[in-house]
């Protein structure tokens, strides 16, 4: 179904990212996937972790601006054209993708893609309707 994602506001300065990573390491939080969206002056770090609520609280207490949002994790076949099937299903149903990124995967024949939608309910209907595998628990291993 849906997966919780923690996003963190980062200034564009050296050492900003490592501070977040250190806080997570000190608290033994395991990162499953991440993406960094960056502009000239600032960035947004998006994280999929094993305990999103605890991560949110820990980062907030460390002084970061944090947000928790719902995203969708989808399994797509790890072969040429694998992602296209999912995207076509979304387009047929007129669903916009706000952003997406892929999660690292150690082995297996499928890749995991994280999607952020504005209309998450309609997006899930479209994905299910097209037979796409939506993960309800995110575990890339």
């Amino acid at each position: 179904m849906e997966v919780a994602q923690v996003s963190v506001f980062l200034e564009n300065r050296s050492g900003g990212l490592v501070e977040v990573v250190d806080v997570l390491a000190r608290n033994a939080i395991d990162m499953k996937a991440l993406s960094l969206a960056d502009m000239a002056d600032f960035g947004i770090l998006r994280l999929i972790v094993d305990d999103p609520e605890r991560t949110r609280v820990i980062l907030k207490e460390a002084g970061f601006t944090v947000d928790k949002t719902r995203v969708v994790a989808v399994e797509v076949p790890d072969r040429p054209g694998g992602l296209g099937e999912t995207l076509h299903a979304l387009r047929r149903n007129g669903i916009n993708v706000e952003y997406m990124y892929s999660a690292a995967r150690r082995k297996g024949e499928s890749a995991i893609i994280i999607f952020r939608f504005d209309e998450i309910g309609r997006a899930l209907d479209a994905l299910h309707g097209a037979g796409v595998t939506v993960l309800d628990r995110f575990d890339p291993l």
Binding site: Q5, S7, M39, F42, R46, K60, T65, D67, E98, R116
Partner: peptide
């Protein structure tokens, strides 16, 4: 300063 009220995960 970007506070939680105005922060978004969307660029």
């Amino acid at each position: 300063e970007v506070t939680a009220e105005v922060f978004s995960d969307k660029m």
